[in-house]
Amino acid sequence: MTKEQAVYRRVLRRETHSPRTGAAVVVATVLAVLLVAVVALGVWWLVDPGSHDLVADRLASVTSFAEDDGALTAVGVLAAVVALVLIVLAVLPGRLPRRARSTDRLALLVDDGVLADAVADAVALRCGIDARQVSATVGRRSATVRVTPTSGVAVDHDAATDSVAAALSAVGFSAVPKLYVARQGVVS
């Protein structure tokens, strides 16, 4: 693997996966606030001897809250849910709606919306209908096309399906085409 191919691979991976900075910033901010609060409480404890009684009273009210089993269960369930969400965010590979491919000379990154527009245009051109009557979405493994025909004009299913596959293979991507034709057409 050449140096350029390694760079292409790293850049394409970064551009097709969502970053985890939002969750990391929230966790870091909460931990920083808790750390500052603990340090401030410790300094206050050392500087003001009268604070011992106030802190003891506050801790007594917290421990009286902890005597209620329902409250402890609720706090435990909430902590478990937050931990589960953070673990899922850390482990799952958040995918962005983009596709990537590279060759020796270049790297190509294409948004799924751009592919969907190309597919819709190809189907409209091949079937001889207005582009506003065709909508398409491209997912990871399939391309879904919805066609609203002109009233009285039949849509050739095979030609439309072939045009979906041809449009995607022209840029080097593949997906299983799914074609849906509306029962009622529009007046042209």
Rank of each mutant, 00 (worst) to 15 (best):
F65R: 14
A74G: 10
A28G: 12
V36S: 13
S64P: 02
I87R: 09
V47A: 12
E67H: 10
A83M: 07
L34G: 02
V47S: 10
W45K: 07
L31H: 04
V43H: 00
V62P: 00
L89P: 00
L59R: 14
A80P: 04
G70A: 08
L31C: 13
A83I: 00
V77F: 10
D57C: 02
F65I: 07
V26F: 05
H52M: 06
L54Q: 11
T29A: 15
V75D: 02
V88K: 01
A60R: 13
L89E: 06
V85G: 03
E67G: 09
W45T: 09
L41S: 14
A79Q: 04
A32K: 00
L54R: 15
A40G: 04
V55Q: 10
A83V: 05
V47P: 01
L31G: 07
V26A: 11
A60Y: 05
V55C: 00
A28Q: 07
H52K: 13
A79F: 03
A90F: 09
L72Y: 01
W44K: 07
H52P: 00
L84R: 07
D48S: 11
D69S: 11
T63W: 09
A71R: 12
I87S: 06
A56G: 09
V55N: 02
A83F: 08
D69N: 07
W44L: 14
D53G: 10
F65L: 14
A79V: 12
D48K: 02
V38F: 03
A66T: 08
I87P: 00
A79S: 12
A56D: 13
V33K: 02
L31I: 03
G50M: 10
V43L: 15
A40Q: 12
D53N: 02
D68P: 04
H52I: 04
V55E: 00
L72S: 10
P49D: 11
A60N: 06
S61K: 14
L59Q: 13
V85H: 03
A80I: 06
L34K: 03
E67Y: 03
V55T: 13
L54I: 08
W44G: 15
V27S: 12
